[in-house]
Nucleic acid binder design. Structure first.
Length: 559
RNA sequence: UGGGCCGUCGCCAAGUGGUAAGGCACCAGGUUUUGAUCCUGGCAUUCGUUGGUUCGAAUCCAGCCGGCCCAGCCA
């Protein structure tokens, strides 16, 4: 069970280089990081990158990493999200040093705000939101000072206290930092620190009617927790001067540093929370944990292992460069992990009946099938065989090219673990569709070898009809047909209509465990599969996690 | 066009003045009772570009070109 593949993140990156230097110069002694999601949605593959970075650094440097909920906007947040985020982080295999809410610091944050006011570095602005926006200027034009900018500390203190004491309506006043309305960096043009918001907070209830904003809260929360390296995505680069301004002007327990890295972009997927929401709300997927969604919960249901996700994150690296990762990297990480752990079974997803004419009707026998071809520790299971079997429709072709190593009229193939069979006759219905096959078998070839040493190129999988278990199988493919659905004017155009195909007539060999459980199976020659949450012995439902690599399909395509 | 950031193989990515790691993908072989896995070999005379500094530059300097981000009382 233990992970044999060394997950030593020996891959260096610019953030680890900075940490190495900080350690070498004794600037820091213990590395402290944090993963700070806002509990306003489900975690996705992009968050996994940040989780692996932050928790991975803490692990490798014998430091600490907190899971901190950045919950300063009560209207968007809920305990449902808090719980799902905790679950996902744990499922990925990480444990936090502590798990605070930014809202735990509201009292301290309020005190810091008062400190700023006393220093004359913050003021209560009584302009409304539209006026503030109008006076902020543009990217190329400076802003103009608020008429309330020069209120006395005394007046600001009174006003701010009154804001806190529920004496005003939402939007009537706001606390702003007094920095520079002419700054070329718009974030420094007197950013709003606190707004009045009469909303119930998932953690603090109705205790507060004013809430601090991200820029004021984040650095201070980092400082309170002793975070040494505050790692965030590139779009916050412009906020760093403000992050520093807050910490430079306040006496805090520690002095963290913000470092930015590039957000994950993956081909064929969407990671914008807003668009993910649309997929769910418009019914294009069954929910946040739909197996086609690259949410952590969706990937879990799809059959991804946490190890494969961590290994993917290791593979893509950390830089400041905007880049888009090819799907193949994720697929490879998944296959690599599943290949070593998946239990092999035979299942037929699109069945074609084969009658073996020279095999006695009342006879049955059992073969020992290896549960893993490379790992004998996985043992074997008994695979029943009888006169009538199912094979995959794709494994038969009436007019087959010479390179087709499977079954066709007059040709011989090996049934995995069992016998060589030769196709004698094709039975069709009135419509000319192939209904079944009549084959003969070579009793001498039992076990899959013949005494005369003749070679058969193809080996196909099969399931004994008499012993087969009926099941349903969900085939999944990428949700979008375009590599960059987010760039399209309307991502709906790029939706893949065939992203989920239900095969409701699958035949399983009897040794497959049907109820919902975490066993990863490889159905030989088909791919990796896992039982769905809804699966039961009475109503088995499996999800295809990933196909096997298929070089035959590639050859066929190029023809 | 104000400010910030980025540009090394098809996609990622090491490299921090001493002569281009690695992964994915791809190509060619070998093993194979999964056209899977596994194994072997191939795949950047060149680091956006042009100049400069230097015995020596992907690494330092300057210009140019291309891309991304910022005008929420969101995070």
């Amino acid at each position: 069970m233990s992970d044999s593949s060394a997950e030593t993140s020996d891959s260096s990156n610019f953030i680890r280089n900075i940490i190495d230097a900080d350690l070498a110069s004794n600037k820091v002694s213990t590395v402290v990081t944090r993963f700070p999601p806002e509990p306003n949605g489900y975690l996705h593959i992009g968050h996994a990158k940040s989780i692996c970075l932050n928790f991975g650094i803490a692990r490798d440097y014998n430091g600490r990493c907190n899971l901190r909920f950045d919950d300063t906007n009560p209207e968007k947040e809920s305990v449902e999200y808090v719980n799902s985020i905790r679950r996902d982080v744990e499922w990925l295999g990480f444990s936090w040093y502590s798990n605070p809410f930014a809202s735990d610091y509201f009292d301290q944050l309020y005190a810091y705000a008062i400190d700023l006011i006393k220093q004359g570095l913050a003021y209560v602005d009584s302009q409304n939101a539209d006026e503030i926006r109008a006076n902020r200027g543009t990217l190329t034009e400076p802003g103009v000072d608020s008429p309330y900018r020069d209120r006395s500390s005394q007046e600001n203190l009174q006003l701010f206290e009154a804001m806190r004491n529920d004496e005003y309506e939402d939007g009537e006043h706001a606390l702003r930092a007094k920095i520079d309305m002419q700054s070329p960096n718009i974030n420094m043009r007197d950013p709003v620190l606190y707004r009045i918001r009469h909303a119930t907070h998932h953690n603090t209830g109705d205790k507060w009617c004013i809430y601090p904003l991200y820029d004021f809260t984040h650095g201070l929360s980092d400082a309170i927790e002793g975070v040494t390296h505050s790692l965030c995505t590139l779009e916050f680069e412009d906020h760093r001067p403000l992050y520093d301004w807050i910490l430079d002007n306040l006496e805090t327990p520690s002095r963290p540093v913000q470092i930015e890295f590039a957000r994950l972009q993956l081909e064929y997927t969407l990671t914008s929370k807003r668009k993910l929401n649309m997929l769910v709300n418009e019914g294009h997927v069954s929910g946040w944990d739909d197996p086609r969604m690259l949410t952590i919960s969706g990937m879990r249901r799809r059959g991804f292992t946490p190890e494969s996700i961590v290994s993917f994150c290791d593979a893509i690296g950390i830089t400041k460069k905007d880049s888009t990762i090819e799907m193949g990297v994720l697929e490879n990480a998944l296959r690599e992990d599943l290949n070593v752990r998946a239990v092999r079974r035979m299942a037929v997803i699109n069945p074609l009946k084969v009658v073996i004419e020279n095999y006695p009707a009342d006879q049955e026998e059992f073969f020992d099938g290896a549960n893993h071809p490379q790992n004998p520790d996985y043992g074997t299971r008994e695979v029943p065989f009888s006169r009538e079997i199912y094979i995959e429709r794709d494994d038969f072709m009436e007019d087959a090219p010479s390179k087709f190593f499977r079954l066709s009229p007059g040709r011989e193939v090996r049934l995995r673990f069992a016998y060589y069979i030769t196709c004698k006759e094709v039975i069709k219905n009135e419509a000319g569709e192939i209904e079944s096959l009549v084959c003969s078998y070579d009793p001498e070839s039992r076990g899959g070898k013949s005494p005369d040493g003749r070679k058969v190129k193809g080996t196909i999988h099969w399931v004994s009809a008499r012993h087969a278990v009926d099941a349903r199988v969900n085939l999944y493919d990428r949700l979008f047909t375009s590599a960059n659905p987010g760039a399209a004017a309307d991502f709906h155009q790029a939706l893949n209509p065939d992203s989920n195909i239900l095969m409701d007539n699958a035949k399983f060999e009897p040794s497959i465990e049907l109820a919902n459980n975490p066993i990863a199976y490889q159905f030989e020659r088909l791919g990796y599969f896992i039982s769905d949450y809804d699966s039961s012995n009475d109503n088995p439902v499996f999800n295809r996690t990933m196909t096997l690599r298929d070089s035959w399909a590639k050859i066929e395509q190029s023809r």
